[in-house]
Design a protein around this nucleic acid. Structure first.
Lengths: 246, 246
DNA sequence: CGAGAGTTTGAATCGGGTCAAAGAGGGTGG
DNA sequence: CCACCCTCTTTGACCCGATTCAAACTCTCG
């Protein structure tokens, strides 16, 4: 029953959620309500006003990329994870005052408190609540991948792992085709994600180019040799649980 | 059919949970049921049989330490987090076939599927479900700390951060007093937690001793200079949310 | 009194960081 | 349309934190 243009907010979410469960008309209608919301744009600054943590509000990122990071006293910065269009910002477990959410590009968000309230209520929204639960699970797997990357992988492996993961996540939203996708962040940010210096990120990217593994230019990334990249990355996609309740 | 001594399972959990919410008689009774369970001992091997993931079962660690780790092809190992007495093993989000749970000492567990089913049902167990939610939240904060440690901290800082975090967690269970607690794991395991080689862990510990920051011997750790250790660690304790529902 | 596991130490090496400076784009205003 | 500027990328030289290899030492336990 949805007409949803291919670029609408609900269409983005639908593409993603339909890979996790089948949504009925009701659920699609619910998601559709998001299209009416006003989009607010932000410029490379925090997407979460200080003191917002635990305020019960949530926002949905509809365009641009963002990232959750912690800053150490002396300025060192570490991104916990990257936030892509279709991800929710402001979940209580994740948003704390010591962890800031940065807009990495100009980014559009809409209010979406339903993601914390109604839609998580399994008795009222069994399907949606289940899907959101599966997504939480995926996110936790990505966090685990991040730990492994940072703890035990070399520069080449870390970046390969990140790229493969991004491809995986973007593909689920229809934003990556054949390992080719828009890639709007700087090498400095890559460094703060994978725990390396800009300089070394650059050298490693050169190496990947030379190996014929990637083509990265003009804000666009293409994974040319997925086998080699996957092998190095040892990336494990989150296998959704067979026993998804209901 | 155990008779609850002060070291009983339910007492351990009670100490911890009472810091997060006030439990009524009903909740305490529920927890008390755990004391009747048969304890199974394990020796330094996986606590989760392969294929167990998503089977709906959960176990409570009642003695000893464990850890969740991922092993890379060439043998590199990275612990995602440490599991202490009173923590639950087998939550669906965390237990996947590619992540193994190791017993780091001989360890006792009891079956505790309630942690995944009944006790998480907010309509039947509002208080318990809320407490378990808060604990999930804490765990996620510790995961974030782990990412920051591995991504942007030096050896000294990483280990200091780990020690302070362990003290924090153990104190909540009444297992640490004045920064002094039983510490049953080897330096090799510390290394696989904080992403360093055994050798360098050793050197760093020597340094800490020399600085008068710690006393570590005979399976016992004492934090002698908490200020200095905290400063270096930049450890942020998980502030429980002011607005805990109900 | 071994034997094995864990800890400690030294020496050589390496992955990655830091510093510094030179290119490359991409906007903006004249 | 060009000059200018700011941000991002790239490259070289040097340095340092951490790893690796190897061997000695210590402790515990049978």
């Amino acid at each position: 029953m949805t007409i949803a243009r291919s670029s609408s907010i609900s269409a983005l979410l639908l593409r993603r959620y339909l890979k996790l469960a089948s949504l009925g008309d009701h659920e699609q209608c619910e998601l559709h309500r998001l299209n009416q919301r006003k989009v607010e744009m932000w410029r490379a600054e925090t997407l979460i006003p200080p003191g917002w943590a635990g305020s019960g509000t949530a926002r949905l990122l509809v365009s641009g990329w963002a990232g959750r990071a912690r800053i150490l006293r002396d300025g060192r910065r570490q991104f916990i994870n990257l936030i892509l269009p279709g991800d929710v910002i402001g979940l209580p477990e994740a948003e704390r005052d010591d962890v800031k959410v940065f807009a990495l590009t100009s980014a559009g968000t809409v209010r979406a408190d339903e993601f914390r309230g109604e839609w998580r209520d399994a008795s009222r929204e069994p399907i949606l609540a289940n899907v959101l639960g599966l997504i939480d699970e995926e996110d936790r797997v990505f966090l685990i991948n991040q730990v492994v990357r940072l703890g035990r992988q070399l520069a080449y492996e870390r970046i390969a792992s990140l790229f493969i993961e991004l491809d995986y996540r973007l593909a689920a939203r229809g934003a990556s085709h054949d390992g080719s996708f828009a890639f709007p962040i700087t090498q400095e940010i890559i460094g703060d994600v994978v725990g390396l210096s800009v300089v070394h990120v650059n050298r490693t990217l050169q190496q990947m180019r030379q190996d014929g593994c990637i083509c990265l230019k003009g804000g666009h990334l293409q994974i040319l040799n997925r086998d080699e990249m996957s092998r190095r990355a040892e990336f494990l996609p989150p296998q959704p649980h067979q026993s998804a309740k209901i």
